[in-house]
């Protein structure tokens, strides 16, 4: 039933590239340690996967490229452009790549020079760092696999769907939904803890709340402008959190959301710093 395979000699498996920009390598680690990794490696051919294979090429011609990490150096940017040029489908893998990651926490607070000075002092480096940005700021992204790190079932679902020529329907509902289905008590209602469940995209089956730990938002805001930071900020204020706490909490993984600043501003006013 698949579209007729064009004549191919030798290896006809789809070609896959796994690349990292600036990140902790957790998303690749997750991909490399899914239970069915050997099955995957039989179904596809990894043309580039530096973390696992020395037979890797930078920007190999691939059908699908998984890119983890944010654009944090000039070299990252060059590599990303090369990767995009050589890939049919480009997938942003993980929080850094999708939302800029924790390295964007200071977005709007400190510019790159201030960050650099704080860590390296006045020392000059031969390489140029940049303010961390999600890859979608620079190239077209075909699919997003959020999470810090992404969940195994979502990685498997994407690869299986990719192999039959489609892609999973992206989730557009918050962690709260999965949390209720899992039967967790709501720690935001009960204890007034700063749980970001209502604005963070589902997929983790409310993993942390299951451990009685409030959501820090590692999967990033719900897409399609349905992350209601303003409403949640109001709720947090009612629970006794300060404006600074709210702003900081929501920005750990969400500072690049196009609406966050406007929405927080409507409730909390401007930056207090």
């Amino acid at each position: 039933m698949m579209t007729i395979i064009e004549e191919c000699t030798g290896d006809c498996r789809p070609r896959v590239g796994v690349y990292a920009l600036t990140s902790c390598y957790g998303c690749q680690l997750k991909l490399a340690t899914v239970q069915k990794i050997i099955d995957i490696s039989n179904m596809v051919s990894f043309e580039s996967f530096y973390m696992l294979s020395s037979a890797s090429k930078m920007a190999a011609d691939v059908d699908v490229a998984f890119v983890e990490g944010s654009v944090s150096t000039e070299r990252d940017l060059e590599e990303l452009m090369e990767i995009r040029k050589h890939s049919r489908i480009l997938v942003a893998l993980g929080a850094c790549s999708v939302n800029g990651g924790v390295q964007s926490w200071a977005e709007g607070e400190m510019d790159h020079d201030a960050l650099h000075k704080c860590v390296y002092g006045d020392s000059k480096l031969t390489m140029q760092g940049l303010q961390a940005t999600p890859i979608s700021k620079h190239v077209d992204v075909d699919y997003y696999l959020p999470g810090c790190p992404p969940e195994e079932d979502e990685i498997m679902y994407f690869i299986s769907a990719f192999l039959i020529g489609t892609f999973p329907e992206p989730k557009d509902y918050p962690v709260c939904a999965e949390c209720r289905l899992a039967g967790n008590p709501c720690i935001l209602i009960e204890r007034g803890e700063p749980c970001l469940g209502p604005v963070i995209v589902a997929g983790c089956k409310a993993r942390c709340i299951g451990f009685d730990v409030p959501c820090v938002g590692c999967r990033g805001p719900v897409p399609h402008e349905t992350a209601w930071f303003d409403s949640l900020a109001q709720t947090f204020l009612r629970k006794g959190m300060t404006e600074k706490q709210i702003r900081q909490r929501m920005k750990i993984f969400g500072s690049h959301d196009p609406n966050i600043e406007r929405m927080l501003h409507s409730i909390l006013g401007g930056e207090t710093e």
């Binding site: 997750k30 924790v102 400190m110 860590v119």
Partner: peptide, 28 residues
């Protein structure tokens, strides 16, 4: 040439709860 992520800088002035949530992200 792995890009810098400035953990020392970004966690300044942040609450301990939020900062300690971010620290494991140094390395997977």
């Amino acid at each position: 040439f792995e890009g810098p992520r400035y953990f020392e800088a970004i966690t300044r002035g942040k609450s301990l709860e939020d900062a300690t949530a971010v620290f494991p992200r140094v390395c997977s």
